[in-house]
Design a protein around this nucleic acid. Sequence first.
DNA 1: GTCTATAGATCGATAGAC
DNA 2: GTCTATCGATCTATAGAC
Lengths: 192, 192
Amino acid sequence: MVAEREDVLPTLAEIFREHGFEGASLAVIVRRTGLGKSSLYHFFPGGKEEMAAAVLKEIEAWFEANVFLPLEKEADPHRALENMLHAVEAYFQSGRRVCLVGALALGDARDRFAAPIRAYFARWREALAEALQRAGLARAEAKDLAEEAIASLQGALVLARAWDDPGAFRRALNRLKARVPARARPMHSARR
Amino acid sequence: MVAEREDVLPTLAEIFREHGFEGASLAVIVRRTGLGKSSLYHFFPGGKEEMAAAVLKEIEAWFEANVFLPLEKEADPHRALENMLHAVEAYFQSGRRVCLVGALALGDARDRFAAPIRAYFARWREALAEALQRAGLARAEAKDLAEEAIASLQGALVLARAWDDPGAFRRALNRLKARVPARARPMHSARR
DNA sequence: GTCTATAGATCGATAGAC
DNA sequence: GTCTATCGATCTATAGAC
């Protein structure tokens, strides 16, 4: 059923998202993955910490390929921003899914994964700011707006989970859809 | 030193903020509070769960007295919003302190405290929307902007913790200071 | 109320047979 | 690679003396 180490990563990611790092006990992991302890330690000799690190690495790679790079490669910045919002909406399942990186940042495992957590958000801000800059915003303004957008999304995930209502995330996406691209479109940059 | 149950609540709150619910082991709590296990169980017969519930209740009461009610009682809505931002900045220590309610919402203890978590954010949005409405915004617009502001703050706390940089929270406060009250001021409502 | 001692469960991780 | 069995540490919680 599961032959490769990579095959369990999505399941592991879901487990860490639902239970956090401390809360994801080996008992839970064994049950959900269907693998025995020995198999898990065969794939991840470093135990839970290596499992979470591998998950973070895969998440980083996914965002790099599906969010960050497209933000920079797409020639039309307006379309680049729209693509990002669509990718994010799909990834977080319209708010039903929590951001593991954000959850780890708020939890007690932050120090353990400080570097990848820091890098994930920094990279996101950088790619988003770059697109906004190409869309006509000044460097400082683009960086600030990028940070605001990411914070809005992360906060919306908190609210969606607090209320058990994906609508909170959907509404945040709509606000960004209506706001960010409109300000960023070069041909209408004199709007304000 | 510590005679009353209420005296340990601030320390308990800080412990839960730093370690989360699962990560706050009794060993940590004993060490940080200076109380023995027996004393803790004397004050909180329900154990950790009762400790966290008491902390949440105190947080809710603090925000009710220092944030939510002032938002509604202050006659000048513009000043009410400024007061809220100042109170929030002080409470979260300019971003060095995490929001326990938000952290619990993202963590694995969400189900355990679903009701107070849900109520905290709902009450905040309601009080904020009420002030924005008095400031001239339509009901729907006020509710939406209130939700956006709260999400921005929660997301900024995630970023501040991820980057270990209180500046992320400070910048979010400044954005709200510059944006929310200006749109909300009734005499300039025709600005857009 | 606070102490010491400890129960009973679960934790992450390992050993060794196959 | 996967199994069973188990280690030692840590967990929450309790018992009983004072």
